[in-house]
Nucleic acid binder design. Structure first.
Lengths: 336, 336
DNA sequence: TTGTATGCGTTATCAT
DNA sequence: ATGATAACGCATACAA
């Protein structure tokens, strides 16, 4: 075990522990010569300052808490990856917890992290729960919290969002331009702000291109593959299939394609399909899936940078950063 | 901010800080009555012991370091999830780092974590590098380290592995029983022990069922989709396609199916395909992919439990735990 | 049963 | 330029 302390080093060199401390925090008046001597010997002895003692002294944990709905999920894994990238460089360790999409567990996690004296929090809320008010209260008391995704634009706090309205609009417009005349939107749960926004974007496109109400539908499914399965089966039974599906996410899109294929309906020839929140799967399946790519990694990085600034009391230009993505057109929406 | 300290509570109640401390660590002689009074008032005041001070005092960080090749990867996300599950319950926080499959970064991460005084490490090595000797040395000096995956069975340390030989054998045997007569194994890099083991399993099946050397091949590809693409294209050009492909993982299997489909070769009718290390994708794509499911979550849990025991000096029955999985048969290998 | 005093390994203030 | 010493918040050996 690493047990060498600042005392050991001081004793070995016949200097005071203050000198050793100075050498390691090179902001002090200390003779360059002795500084180097100290550092050299310390290295020999395998000495590293005990971060726990430093934390106690500085009354800072250098820990940041991150809460995501679940990280067995490409999306949040990537967000976390971006967060870690930035925070590690800034000397922070990241404590990650999952809420399993459950507000009460989310709350419990926040408490745990606060009791652990995290210096700040990055929260990807599971949904729009009463927790949000609790967070606002904490912020007003001086806590540093940054939110990512699934938060209303009007929520008065630092946050990083994706422009769901815009990209939902663009995805829909793409289908229209490809000549699909009857388009159904398989939307997520309505209590999620992201679903709401994607519906808005979809509607906007329908209005812009003057689709009659008979030529489009918004069907609330869920975020899971099974949710879509049921719906599409029903549509087939009712002989109510559209020209194209604009799906809330890739999982739903995939499931749609799968069922259509079972019924020998060709994608994209008979029916076009586009996903959202692109996953790696999109370019691996056949037909390759068109989708909207979100800048997950960058969203994580941005949130982490905002948090660092917040902790260091650096004033920020905009409290809300709304990011853009890419519309990746592939086979599933490209009939010739 | 949470600034109430043990002192504040003591002062408020006109008791000594020792009493408060005792109340919170209820292993001491303390009058039940006062204990309750203290806890009640402490709660009112929003007091929580400062874990950093506790750590300093107890010379324990209650942090565990986890290093994985990358966690933007279902496999390791799930392993980490299992690890967290167990460790959080035991009062530990988990610090996760990625090695990006690079031994030198892996080494750097270990150093960082050790300097942060982690109480133990769980390492999923990127490959069989010289780091392994360094780890052994650390272990001999009293460090607690448990390894997961990608480690040779002969490596003399605590570890959790998957029985690649057995399940590779079973996957291959399944193809044979389905009547496929000419089987190619798309193997990963040979410097990975998992590749090596899966090749062994494959060979074992070939021997057992007396396949002549002309009826099977082992082709070293990589772990990525692109690696397989090139190979299969070549096989098609050379008119050297087998009856079935036994693939190192789902990604490769997926890519194989995709290319075959582009060439209008039907799976599973013309050619059977089976993957390994099942991903969620397997049951979502069409045709649904047969694959070997690894108990990722349980592997993480097991490793964490072993680590806890190690830290608490609890003797362990077996140093090596080799886990089994499931052979999930789906459409891609099920011709009628 | 409770209180006092010491130390965990640092950093920072004040001397020298 | 360097050393002595007091904190940081807690747990614990010892005293009462």
């Amino acid at each position: 075990m690493n047990k060498t302390t600042i005392k050991d080093v001081a004793k070995r060199l016949n200097v005071s522990i203050s000198s050793v401390s100075r050498a390691f925090n090179d902001k002090y008046d200390i003779k360059k010569e002795t500084r180097e001597r100290i550092l050299r010997v310390a290295k020999e002895m395998g000495y590293h300052p005990n971060p726990i003692a430093q934390k106690l002294k500085q009354n800072k944990s250098f820990n940041i808490g991150v809460i995501v709905p679940e990280f067995i999920n490409e999306y949040y894994s990537e967000v976390i990856s971006g967060i870690q990238e930035v925070l590690n460089v800034n000397g922070y360790q990241v404590l990650t917890m999952q809420s399993n999409n459950c507000p009460s567990l989310e709350f419990k996690n926040v408490e745990t992290l606060l009791n652990n004296r995290v210096d700040g929090l990055i929260i990807c809320p599971s949904c729009d729960s009463e927790n949000m008010n609790f967070y606002l209260e904490k912020i007003s008391k001086g806590q540093h919290i940054v939110f990512v995704n699934r938060v209303k634009e009007s929520f008065p706090a630092k946050k990083v969002l994706f422009n769901n309205i815009k990209w939902s609009y663009l995805a829909t417009e793409h289908l229209i331009q490809k000549g699909y005349k009857k388009i159904y939107h398989l939307a997520g749960n309505k209590n999620l702000s992201i679903s709401h926004d994607r519906i808005s974007g979809f509607k906007k496109a329908m209005e812009k291109y003057k689709f009659p109400t008979s030529s489009f539908k918004i069907i609330e499914t869920g975020l899971l593959a099974e949710d879509a399965t049921v719906i599409v089966e029903e549509l087939i039974l009712d002989d109510d299939l559209p020209d194209a599906f604009m799906c809330i996410n890739d999982l739903v899109a995939l499931s749609v394609i799968s069922i259509l294929s079972e019924h020998s309906i060709a994608v994209p020839e008979d029916i076009g399909v586009i996903g959202f929140t692109e996953t790696k799967m999109a370019s691996l399946m056949s037909p390759k899936l068109s989708s909207v790519k979100q800048p997950t990694y960058e969203m994580g990085k941005t949130a982490a940078e905002m948090l660092c600034k917040s902790i260091n009391n650096i004033v920020i230009e905009r409290e809300t950063v709304i990011m853009n993505g890419d519309l990746n057109i592939r086979k599933s929406s490209s009939r010739s």
